[in-house]
Each structure stands twice: as structure tokens, then as C-alpha cells.
Design a binder for these strands. Structure first.
Lengths: 215, 215
DNA sequence: TAGATTGTTAATCGATTAACAATC
DNA sequence: TAGATTGTTAATCGATTAACAATC
């Protein structure tokens, strides 16, 4: 049974950490855990954890004892869709694209990349990590035929919008964008940006502060 | 000349987008741009853009005209440290690690990965994308000798804490963590998590909403 | 001058945290 | 019962947005 609510992006992003924490707890043979314990482990506020849990879990906690670990795990996995995989395609078989194709971990997170696309004749028709690379022209047909709704963009920034347009025309509703560019898409299509440059900016600022302090 | 302030993480993460936008504007031969124009392009509030700019730029905008594109670009690049590279090392030469080693784009963002480490005998001493792979035992010595302050973790989650501990002992002050685990480190060390599972969670929730609507 | 844009101050909005009664 | 934990309501906090005078 899955709760039909929407979490804020912040709450959603905490979920994988809860899951990681709960699995560790379970490995240690513990069957019941309090929100307070989870909060301490992850450096979060305990009320926040309780609220997040109550948003998506059908289970209620018991005062004094806490929550049943197994039930929490199942509820979160259900909510995150880890138990029924989503099929996706990937465009741009460069070094990053290859890495994503080869990342078997994604299956654990409910993502299954079924095929890749590129414009480079040398790569087309190759099989990389068990996934075939097709010519970009075949994208629309394959997406429609296979009812694919997730597209991953790992092409250079200058081609990303072009790929996004193709995605939209092919019925894709969610785009995982690794190119550093703001894509414009219709309202019902979600773009999740994986912005490595932004992460680097955060690192860089911290490092500069550290260096300044030690001067 | 660089302003010595700290931006919020949110503001910091907008910077690479401003930069991308400004470079595009410059390519079109435009020399002066208004905050309003940038805001429209990136779907942001114009006051927010103005505030972000005023935080890190030494240039002031001129009423009615706007800001000088070249000056904005230079200020942002300076602030983000794109003009003086930071040296970094990477641990875990799996598919993701290889992809990061091979990503020549990082140099543009001021990051220079100078060496990699692994425990796999078959990989040690290999040269991947021009970067040599060393045995993990050599990490501390190399970091101290070369004054490295940035470490990248691309090992499986169960080994990540161990690597982080080694980093801390070797004088690393900023960790870019691709493993899905909350690392515990001293207060002065920053951990920037690249949480691909969290991104997938966002995609998954949106997709479920879309599917439900079309039922 | 008129109008567009800047930059500051105040208001809003939403997420997180604090306080506290209810429960086992 | 006493004490720990839950879950709700109110307060806080910080980021974003609105309002508006200053400027070219």
C-alpha cells in the first residue's frame, strides 16, 4: 500500500538517507527504531524525521518504542519506486554516458536503462555494458514503441536542448540532465539537473575559507 | 579583485547558470545585460538575480542600462575559482571513477584531478586518461607532499567512511562524495554529496504523478 | 523629461524547529 | 506509575518576492 502524496524536494532527497540508515540498523539485527535514533545518526532534527515518516508511511509509531524497521524500509522503497523499475534511455555515449550505462547500482534504485543513442558512427551498433547504442534517428520510434518516459542527457551542453526537444516529441515526461544548461520544456515535463559545476562551486568556496583562516 | 563573502548554497548553485547564460549572451555580441533579462532567461526572479550579483561582483549596475557582461563573467569566474585550479585526488577507479578521471570539462571549472587510488592490484600502476592509479597506501604521503585539499570518493558505500577517514588524516578539507552514505568528518571538513539516488527519487515521484493523471 | 533599471527595505512564504499534550 | 517517544500546533528562521525611491 502506497501513500499518494507529494513530498517537498527536500524531504524526497532525505529519503535515500533514511533508507541507507534503516538498512544498516536492520543489518545489526535491530527490529524497532525511534525517530530520535535516526535523527541522531543522520544529524537531523527528530521532529523532521517523524514528519517525513508520517508523510509516506502507513505505519504509525508507538510511543516509547518507535517504528518497526522492516515496515519503514518497505514503505520508503515503495514510495521511491524501488520495487517496480522504470525504463529509461540515455543519449550521449561519452565517458559520463558510459559510466552511467555501466552503473549496475541504478537497478537497485528502480532505474533500468534499456538503450543508448549517439550520433557517432563509430559507436552506433556497439553494445556497451549489455546496452545497445542506436542512431539518434531511432529515438522517437523506440520510445513510443516501448513506452519510455525517462530520458537521460549526457551530451555536451550545446546539444542538450536539441536532445530535450526530441525527448518531448517522443513522449518523455522526466529528463535527467547532466549538461550544464537550463533546458526549456513544457510544463508537464520535469527536468532534474545534475549540476556537477554547482557542487564544485560549493567545494571551492569552502576551501577558500579554510585557506583564508589558516593565513 | 575578489569579494570575500560567503554565499548561501542556493545562491552558489545558481552561479554556474548565470555564467552559462552570460557566456551565451556574450557569444551573441551583446555587451550589456540587465538583471531582468538574465532572470527571464533562467526563470528566476529579477530581484534575486540582482542580489546575487551584488553579493559577489565589484561592478555596480547602471540604472536603465544594466551590467557589463564581461565584468560579470570575470567576477563570477573569479568567485568560483575557475581561474586558479584546485588539485584533487580520486579514490575508487570503477566505472564512475573512470568517467570522472576522463572528464576534461572539470578543468574549465578549476578542478584538476592529479592522481587516483584503488585497492585492486590489476588497476594499480595503470594510467587512465593520463592519470596514474596508485595503491591506497600511498594516499597520505602524496596528499601531504603535494598539499592536496580536495578528495573525491567513488568507492562503494561500505568503504566510503574508511576512505573519508584516510582523507581527514591526510589533510583533506573538502570531500566530493559520490557514495550514498552520510560521512562523519570533523567540523572543518566539508562533504559535498552527489546523491544520484535522490535525483532519481525526484524523477520517480514526478513520473508517478504524470501516470496517475492520465489514468 | 519620461521610462527603464538598479538597489534597498519591508512583506511574504515555506521549511525547520520548539513546545507540549497524548500514549504506551 | 514514571519516563520515553509520538504526533500536532505554534514559533522561528531564512530565503524569496514585493514595493518603492534613486538614478541615468
Amino acid at each position: 500500500m502506497k501513500k499518494d502524496v507529494n513530498l517537498t524536494v527536500q524531504a524526497l532527497q532525505r529519503m535515500p538517507y533514511y533508507l541507507q540508515c534503516l538498512r544498516k540498523v536492520k543489518e545489526n539485527g535491530i527490529q524497532i527504531v525511534s525517530a530520535t535514533a535516526i535523527a541522531n545518526e543522520l544529524n537531523l532534527n527528530d521532529v523532521l524525521v517523524r514528519k517525513d515518516i508520517s508523510m509516506i508511511c502507513t505505519t504509525k509509531g508507538k510511543p516509547k518504542t518507535g517504528f518497526i524497521v522492516d515496515e519503514l524500509i518497505e514503505n520508503i522503497e515503495d514510495y521511491l519506486g524501488y520495487n517496480n523499475t522504470m525504463d529509461a534511455i540515455l543519449v550521449g555515449v561519452g565517458s559520463l554516458g558510459k559510466a552511467l550505462l555501466g552503473n549496475s547500482e541504478f537497478n537497485k534504485f528502480g532505474l533500468n536503462i534499456i538503450a543508448a543513442f549517439d550520433i557517432d558512427e563509430d559507436i552506433i551498433n556497439q553494445v556497451i555494458c549489455g546496452k545497445k547504442v542506436f542512431a539518434i534517428e531511432k529515438l522517437q520510434n523506440l520510445c513510443e514503441r516501448m513506452h519510455i518516459h525517462i530520458g537521460i542527457i549526457t551530451v555536451p551542453a550545446e546539444f542538450a536542448q536539441e536532445v530535450a526537444d526530441k525527448f518531448v516529441n517522443s513522449g518523455i515526461k522526466a529528463i535527467w540532465n547532466f549538461a550544464l544548461i537550463k533546458l526549456s520544456v513544457p510544463e508537464d515535463v520535469l527536468v532534474q539537473n545534475e549540476n556537477l559545476a554547482a557542487s564544485l562551486a560549493v567545494l571551492s568556496q569552502h576551501l577558500r575559507n579554510e585557506m583564508d583562516e589558516n593565513k
